[in-house]
Nucleic acid binder design. Sequence first.
DNA 1: TAGATTGTTAATCGATTAACAATC
DNA 2: TAGATTGTTAATCGATTAACAATC
Lengths: 215, 215
Amino acid sequence: MSTKTKLSYTPSIRRLPSYLHIIRAFQRTSDPYISGTWIANELNLEPIQVRKDLAITGIVGKPKKGYPVEQLISAIEHYLAWDVEQKAIIVGAGNLGSALTGYQEFRNHGLHIVAAFDSDPSKTGKTIHQVQIFHMENLKEIVEKMNITLAILTVPSPYAQSSCDAIVAAGIRAIWNFTNVKLKVPEEVLVQREDLSSGYAILSVMMRTQANNLS
Amino acid sequence: MSTKTKLSYTPSIRRLPSYLHIIRAFQRTSDPYISGTWIANELNLEPIQVRKDLAITGIVGKPKKGYPVEQLISAIEHYLAWDVEQKAIIVGAGNLGSALTGYQEFRNHGLHIVAAFDSDPSKTGKTIHQVQIFHMENLKEIVEKMNITLAILTVPSPYAQSSCDAIVAAGIRAIWNFTNVKLKVPEEVLVQREDLSSGYAILSVMMRTQANNLS
DNA sequence: TAGATTGTTAATCGATTAACAATC
DNA sequence: TAGATTGTTAATCGATTAACAATC
């Protein structure tokens, strides 16, 4: 059976992290209930969309009051599998790798970056944000020893495919790909590509459209 | 009139950069025509989807042969407004700001980062990837002098809104927001948020789903 | 109680996919 | 010519939005 079945509710899943962020901030007010309407206002969304999105987590709200804050946070975290610690490694200890390693928000998502790898021997032994850098030669050994299942790929694009091959050979099953390369992987390996250019494409067309409207 | 009209074809626009990337690589083969079928195979998409996407740029192909490579590149670049130079500044000269400043691919998109800003005085005068760092105090002055219309926001989230306010006060009309903060801006200012957590949410749910299927 | 908010069911909208004639 | 590929028109699919009864 192919593992490449399509994921349902992807637009909703993409919005859940912003809900979680907002709800955690709201939690500090000690109000035990939060309404979908309030979340929607905060994020410029429609209340019905928020309710539909939250429904996929299985949360049940109370008419008139809203959703119980603690339970709602748990439900979102559980749905996203953010309630269990997920260990990950950084492959490519450059600026982007370093930025992601230092990104505190990931800790709130259960994501722990436990090691970094680089093919530049002069980086070996150094640390980025208290995470040790190893040489790529030791990838398989350390991945096996630490039982790692996720790699974050932040190498320059010419090295993307070869690094990916090393990651797969090390037994890793999921890759978060920050390069602009479409990676070739065995069917059972999951790849999530973070394409910076696509966001800029949207912004660029918006700017052109706005400029045209003004004239 | 509100400028917040919804952008059409956003899924297609998001895919155009990967098409462009593939087509530019193909260009080196000197073959004057490229088929939608070939692009689709390369990116694991359906040929019909590629044809529909390319159609929004106005390109016209030749049955049996495909699309003329040079014209296709021009059509995509023109549609994305990537055929004109777009100057931008980095606000927040940390690791992420530095990574984006050094990201060579942006040059292929007409995006030129011409200055960086940071509130840390010890960074003032230094450079990241040959781009000079200025103090935030000089933001408005330099933005006006250099006629900047786009800011890339890469500050830590606690500083996101105040930095955004400074950007707007400097007269900038478009912000590419890499923080996890929902920015409050006047209606006429465009914001494109790049939300790293949403990509991780997708990956995390895929991993959970796959793990469940295997058991 | 009155009214705000939920959850469900239905309607709409837009994106993807299918079918196929046209054609180089 | 035969066949691969385009572009158009229609069908399907899934996401968003609307309507509204239930209810705390």
